[in-house]
Computed example of a mutant assay.
Amino acid sequence: MSGNSSDLGYVPRVREIETSRAEAKELSSQIFDAIGLKGQISQPGPGVSRCDKDPKVLYKIRHPWSLWGVPEAAMEKAMERLNDELPKRGWKVTSYGRDSSRAKNLEIIADSKKFDFSANITFMDKRNPSQEAPADLSKTSGIVVDVVSACFRVPDGKVVDAY
Score class of each variant (00 low, 15 high):
residue 85 E to N: 12
residue 156 D to I: 09
residue 22 A to D: 14
residue 131 Q to I: 11
residue 64 P to Y: 08
residue 88 K to M: 13
residue 152 F to M: 10
residue 59 Y to R: 08
residue 1 M to W: 11
residue 111 D to R: 09
residue 106 L to E: 15
residue 142 G to L: 10
residue 104 K to L: 10
residue 15 R to N: 11
residue 10 Y to A: 08
residue 132 E to Q: 10
residue 112 S to I: 08
residue 131 Q to F: 00
residue 2 S to C: 05
residue 61 I to C: 02
residue 109 I to R: 15
residue 34 A to C: 13
residue 14 V to W: 00
residue 102 R to P: 02
residue 27 L to C: 05
residue 66 S to R: 10
residue 119 A to Y: 04
residue 81 R to Y: 00
residue 139 K to Y: 07
residue 84 D to L: 15
residue 41 I to M: 13
residue 92 K to C: 00
residue 82 L to A: 04
residue 122 T to M: 09
residue 59 Y to H: 10
residue 88 K to V: 11
residue 72 E to T: 15
residue 157 G to F: 05
residue 28 S to K: 08
residue 20 S to G: 11
residue 121 I to N: 00
residue 105 N to W: 04
residue 35 I to Q: 01
residue 120 N to S: 13
residue 99 D to V: 04
residue 11 V to N: 14
residue 8 L to W: 01
residue 3 G to Q: 11
residue 120 N to E: 10
residue 135 A to G: 04
residue 137 L to E: 03
residue 24 A to P: 03
residue 55 P to D: 13
residue 62 R to L: 04
residue 85 E to R: 14
residue 156 D to T: 13
residue 71 P to C: 02
residue 100 S to M: 01
residue 19 T to D: 15
residue 160 V to W: 09
residue 153 R to H: 09
residue 20 S to N: 07
residue 96 Y to R: 07
residue 84 D to H: 12
residue 86 L to C: 04
residue 18 E to T: 14
residue 160 V to N: 10
residue 15 R to T: 07
